[in-house]
Amino acid sequence: MSGPAGPEVRDERARRAGGAGVIPPARKGAPAPGAWLDAARRARLSVLPALAVILCLLGAWELYVDLGGVDPLVLPAPHAVLASLYDDRALLWSNFLVTAREIALGIVAAMAAGLAMAVVIHFSPTLRRALYPLLVASQAVPVPMLAPVLALWLGFGILPKVVVIALVSFFPVVVTTLAGFAAVDPELLRLMRTLDAGRLETFRRVELPAALPSVVTGTKIAIVVAVIGAVFAEWMSASSGLGYLFEQSIAQLLPARAFATTAVLCALSIGLFTLMTVAERRLLPWANQPKSEGDR
């Protein structure tokens, strides 16, 4: 293994070095108190550089606007954006709820449809040849053009937004899930056959669980594009939502509120991404463990 090894990796090696048969299984939640403090401190220290860069950029921005005589209609100062975040909190919150709901529904639909599509393609070489090119081609259709058409067909409710979000989120889920199925060791599949496992048993016990981390990876990518999709969909046919609020704020010459809306959208995206990361660590703790010795 090359590159810097994380603390977990090193711990793992140290335990392995103890030899065969004498290593007790690591217990969760019982590290030495000192080790915990160390970990917390390390985590804090690791975000410091990024935090410093952000603060520097915000500071430079603030100084540029305050001292450079920039028209606040062109570029609001960070303090004005902060003020809007506070003053317009009720408005931002109600629109946040609308967009968050659209995205959540869209992502869930994309996960369900993406997983189903991946399974179908995985099981049938014929359907793979039939569907995969269409899948790739569907990604070539630009979302900004899709959104008004869908509004035309599906009206101005939540449905066209969810459909747009699901459409843009679908592709990454399918592709990463298929990659997860394909990454299963063929030797393992041969072993399963000698254990008398049929196709469905092998899929259920080996391939599906093995692909779950890939589904999560696809969903993480999907979250990022889903926010873009949501904004476009709201621009076309909405009377609420963060994308709509942004557009209104620009039109009403409230740039600080527009920036505040953008900040909330970013927070939503980062929050969903973090949620997936936490869920992965909780539900699939084995996914990010170091590879077995034989693979090194």
């Binding site: 060791d185 030797e187 072993l191 008398d196 496992a197 016990r205 080996v206 669980p209 996914a287 077995s292």
Partner: peptide, 28 residues
């Protein structure tokens, strides 16, 4: 009838040792 034991252990990382050992029984 023969059962294969591969060169690499190829244990399923999401299963405990006992569940890995019992895989053939679960399949049955």
């Amino acid at each position: 009838p023969a059962a294969l034991m591969p060169q690499r252990d190829l244990l399923l990382p999401w299963l405990s040792a006992v569940d890995n050992a019992a895989l053939a029984l679960r399949v049955r």
